[in-house]
Design a protein around this nucleic acid. Sequence first.
DNA 1: TTGTTATATTTGATATATCAAATATATTTG
DNA 2: CAAATATATTTGATATATCAAATATAACAA
Lengths: 145, 145
Amino acid sequence: MNIKTPSQVIFYSIERAIKEYRKLAQKKISDKIDNITVDQGNILLFLHHYPELSQKEIAELIFKDNASMTRMIDLMVKKGYLARSVNNNDRRRHTIDITTKGKEVLKKLPPIISQNRSKALEGITEDEMNQLEHILNKIIMNCTK
Amino acid sequence: MNIKTPSQVIFYSIERAIKEYRKLAQKKISDKIDNITVDQGNILLFLHHYPELSQKEIAELIFKDNASMTRMIDLMVKKGYLARSVNNNDRRRHTIDITTKGKEVLKKLPPIISQNRSKALEGITEDEMNQLEHILNKIIMNCTK
DNA sequence: TTGTTATATTTGATATATCAAATATATTTG
DNA sequence: CAAATATATTTGATATATCAAATATAACAA
């Protein structure tokens, strides 16, 4: 396969970068909190800031499928981090509440996440981050339009 | 959550970009080839170029776990794209051969992939690709070192 | 050569991804 | 209002991700 053109390599790099970051993030979270995945942590954080979110809305925010979201929330309910009840304004929707156990996790999460980001972005300038953001947005637009 | 700093957003963008690209790629592949996933296509391509690859080596190339690789190859054998046999030089390893059915897929794959890349990278300069590559590599290094 | 250590693959358990179909409730239209 | 359509969630089927433990073979060391 000799020398690869940038376009051949670029998606490998994107994929690898996010996978390595997730691996790091999961490791650091597991070191300090039992039984929580990166995605479960994200769900807690979003629900904390926007308590009214429906499953569908959370799914969009963290780029998951509705079916995945049902199962993730199921699991988090089973583990005692969340409680699910029918929303009386719209009985199709569910209201998701964070339990005391979920709130305990929420206390520990932010510093870990911010350390993970710092580590992963070490030596990268604000300017580079903006470039990265800008180019990735182009790719996202190209793929979704 | 008001205004987000670049570092808060960047991993979301990376994740979203690769997910949207994968979605596009899978759709375009499924349009023309039955019953093949993006990853299965990648396995075929790598095996085509490097027939001697072991499962472990393929796994590294496409950033998969060994356990995932076992199951992916199992499935591809079951579907008739690959044949697996013990390597007589090292009986721990398996030799993976591409079947006639697998070769049929291989013929159709490259133009689809190249179209997908072109679409996803439309309007992005070579220079931007190199920048992207460079920054992503920094992230990868930071996460793995 | 035997015991120890290393490597490749598999298996089990659990979590997530994705599509399509099913279910329940809301909303819109004739 | 009744019928048609839309939306939110669930379920089933299949694929992949990840860790840890098991298995088989190879390579090395005493």
